[in-house]
């Protein structure tokens, strides 16, 4: 099911938590929702899941609107809220059964769905324990399991990997990727490598506004205008090297920190070959030439600090 967010605004008093944002997510797309704390990610998600009404605007899923068809839509949305609230006094299996039946899973299928979720989320060892006795990682899995138990078309996950250890994070990411093949997934995070690892699209939101939208690789390209490389050159006098590097015509900037050189090439050009030949000419040994890629982190800082 495609999700279309139209001119969504949410005001708390005079403050705008979400300020007139619009975007579209297609079925089979995994959208990473990025932004500093308090940017409006959670508010947007709460509106999409029909938990609260927007001040203005609408969200359409398929041909249904959250304003008029909430009861119909809620059946088709799986939601993992921020901080993963759960009934801690219930055993895992009972809780999943409750979630399934309340979401309208036919009685005959409930057992099968639970079995499927237990397998998918790796809950087998813990399934008879009370949720309160589980570690944070397992609780997160229960949270995911309850969100997916009714096989929803849309999955909204608010920071699904907080509090997990690196292994679990990788597992959950794989799971989200797998699910994203046939469902529409929106998940929020402020961990950037996570977005690169899982999403095919990123929206960065700041102060309630969308400040960047695109594939992670596109965003990175946008940010990196010029080629920047780190060099390590041995067997030469640093001052000499510095001077000769500066004299190369397609190099815009050279910097030396007493250890390595950083060169920035003029926009749209490359200087690696020239650097290599320069070293050969002067009998210097080039021991390192590594491109410094502007990563998403920089994109993120650029668009959210501005």
């Amino acid at each position: 099911m495609n999700i279309r967010v139209n001119n969504l605004t949410k005001r708390y008093g005079t403050q705008k938590a979400v300020d007139n944002i619009s975007f579209e997510v297609k079925s089979g797309e995994i959208l990473g929702f990025l932004g500093p704390n308090g940017a409006g990610k959670t508010t947007t998600m709460k509106i999409i899941t029909c938990f609260m009404a927007p001040s203005e605007g609408d969200v359409l899923m398929g041909e249904y609107s959250i304003l008029s068809d909430a009861n119909l839509l809620k059946k088709r949305i799986g939601y993992l809220p921020e901080n993963n609230p759960l009934y801690v006094d219930m055993p895992v299996i009972e809780y999943l059964a409750f979630s399934a039946s309340i979401q309208g899973v036919p009685k005959a299928q409930v057992k099968g769905r639970i079995r499927e979720m237990v397998r998918l989320c790796g809950l087998d060892k813990e399934k008879h324990k009370n949720i309160g006795e589980l570690s944070k990682g397992y609780r997160q899995r229960v949270g995911l399991a309850q969100a997916m138990i009714h096989n929803p078309d849309v999955l909204i996950l608010d920071e699904p990997t907080t509090g997990l250890d690196p292994n679990q994070i990788v597992e959950i990411r794989e799971l989200i990727k797998e699910l994203g093949k046939e469902k529409t997934v929106i998940f929020s995070t402020h961990i950037l490598p996570e977005v690169e690892a899982t999403c095919n699209r990123v929206i960065i939101i700041n102060d309630g506004k969308i400040v960047a939208d695109g594939a992670p690789s596109d965003l990175r390209k946008q940010a990196s205008g010029a080629e920047v490389s780190r060099l390590k050159i041995e067997d030469g006098n640093p001052d000499d090297i510095l001077q000769k590097l500066r004299s190369l015509e397609n190099i815009a900037l050279v910097d030396y920190n007493g250890h390595t050189f950083t060169i920035e090439t003029k926009k749209g050009e490359t200087s690696r070959r020239q650097v290599f030949y320069l070293c050969v000419e002067n009998n210097w040994v080039l021991t390192e030439l590594s491109p410094i890629e502007r990563d998403l982190e920089e994109v993120f800082r650029n668009v959210t600090m501005g």
């Binding site: 709460k46 899941t49 029909c50 938990f51 009861n71 809620k74 059946k75 949305i77 939601y79 809220p81 921020e82 901080n83 609230p85 759960l86 009934y87 801690v88 979630s99 309340i102 979401q103 309208g104 309850q146 009714h150």
Partner: peptide, 14 residues
Amino acid sequence: NTGTIELLLTKAVT
């Protein structure tokens, strides 16, 4: 207090 109300209200119930 625990936030489970959000979970409950976003299920397919009125």
